[in-house]
């Protein structure tokens, strides 16, 4: 009989470490009976989906939850690049 803790282990690494068919059946039976583990699976899937979209959000300029380049840092980088670019030309 799988415990809820076992379920979290099996479900969390399902891609890296696929369960055997016996384990799959045991997981399904547990999920039928256990609402908490069903919710755990839904929560995990949502977080995974969100994390996987972060890079695209950054590229699209949507990730406003992450700080943007501060003005002083921008100026420092600009000066450095100008200097290097003159050297390269």
């Amino acid at each position: 009989m799988l415990t809820c803790k076992n379920i979290t282990h099996l479900v969390s690494t399902v891609i890296e470490h696929p369960p055997t068919w016996r384990q799959r059946i045991a997981i399904q039976i547990h999920l039928w009976m256990c609402a908490s583990c069903r919710h755990f699976v839904q929560q995990s899937q949502l977080l995974q989906r969100a994390v996987r979209s972060i890079k695209q959000r950054i590229i699209n300029g949507e990730a406003e939850e992450i700080p943007s380049l501060p003005e002083d840092a921008r100026q420092r980088i600009f000066n450095h690049l100008q200097h290097e670019q003159k050297r390269m030309l």
Binding site: I58, R74, L81
Partner: peptide, 21 residues
């Protein structure tokens, strides 16, 4: 000669966010 300035303007925030992550 304008590349660096343009890239920094247009993509600086994106690169910095990705770097911070």
């Amino acid at each position: 000669p304008h590349f660096a300035a343009t890239w920094l303007d247009e993509h600086g925030d994106m690169l910095y966010r990705y770097a911070l992550l």
